Computed example of a mutant assay.
Amino acid sequence: MKYKNLFFDLDDTIWAFSRNARETFEEVYRQYSFDRYFDSFDHYYTLYQKRNTELWVEYAEGKVTKDELNRQRFFYPLQAVGVGDEALAERFSKDFFAIIPTKSGLMPYAKEVLEYLAPKYNLYILSNGFRELQSRKMHSAGVAGYFRKVILSEDLGLLKPRPELFHFALSATQSELHESLMIGDSWEADITGAHGVGMHQAFYNVSERTVFPFLPTYHLHSLKELMDLL
C-alpha cells in the first residue's frame, strides 16, 4: 500500500505522556508536601488515575466540560482522603500544567523514525489533547517541525474515535482516505476510530494488549518497525 499521509496520535505514541506526566505529578506532589495527606506518592497517583480515566469517558460522552474535568480530577484525590480544600487542588493543577509541557521525553525511536519519515510523507498529528498543551509539548521535545498540521479534538468539539473527527482531519489536510494511515497507541480512540471510517491503522501496542475485536492493518511493538513498513 502506497501512503502519502501519516496521522500520528501524540500522547504515548510520539511524546512519552505516561512517563512525563508521572514525573511531573511526583515533582508537584513533593513541592506541596502531600505526604502529609497520602500514604505515598503511589497512593495519590492511583486515586488520581482512577478518577481521571472515568472523567475522560464522561468528557467524551459530553457529560462534563473540559473545565469540570480538570477541576474534578485534581480535587478528587484530596477529597478521597478527607481534604476538602478545593483552592489547594487548583493551585496544584496550575503548577502541574505549567510544568508538564516543558517535559521533553519521547517514546523510544520517535525522533529517529520521524527523521526517516518526514522527507517521504506528509506527517500530521491527530490528538484528543488540549491545544494549550500539545503545541508546547511538541516544541519542548523538538518534534514540532516534523508535522505539517496539528488537528485536535477541540477543533471540532468531538473526540476520537468519532468518525466526524477523522473526516475533519482528512478534509483539513486535503488527504485522501485510501492514501492515509493512522498510527496510535489507543485501541479505542486511534485504531477503532480509523477502522470505522475505512482508514488503515498501525496499532502501537505499548500496553501489550492481547485481545483484538479485529486485526489492525499493522501491529507494532516499536515505532522503529515503521521504518521497515514504510
Rank of each mutant, 00 (worst) to 15 (best):
M1Q: 12
K2D: 14
D9T: 11
D9G: 05
D11F: 04
T13S: 15
I14P: 00
F17V: 04
S18D: 13
A21C: 05
E23F: 12
E23N: 14
Y29K: 01
R36F: 06
F38A: 05
Y44N: 06
Y45E: 13
T46N: 14
L47Q: 07
K50I: 09
T53L: 14
W56H: 08
G62W: 05
V64Q: 01
E68W: 03
L69G: 09
Q72N: 14
F74R: 00
A80K: 06
G82P: 12
L88Y: 10
E90D: 11
R91F: 09
S93P: 02
I99Q: 03
P101G: 04
T102I: 07
T102W: 09
S104N: 13
G105D: 11
L106K: 07
L106M: 11
M107N: 04
Y116D: 12
A118R: 14
P119Q: 11
K120V: 03
N122T: 09
N128F: 07
K137F: 04
K137D: 01
M138H: 06
M138W: 09
S140K: 02
A144M: 13
Y146V: 04
I151S: 00
I151M: 10
D155P: 04
D155C: 11
L159W: 12
L159S: 10
K160W: 08
K160I: 03
E164T: 06
L165Q: 01
L165P: 02
A172G: 07
T173A: 14
T173V: 07
L177R: 09
I183W: 01
I183Q: 00
A189R: 07
I191K: 03
G193A: 00
M199H: 01
N205K: 14
V211A: 12
F212S: 05
F212D: 08
P216K: 00
S222D: 15
S222I: 09
S222K: 13
K224F: 12
L226Q: 11
L230Q: 07
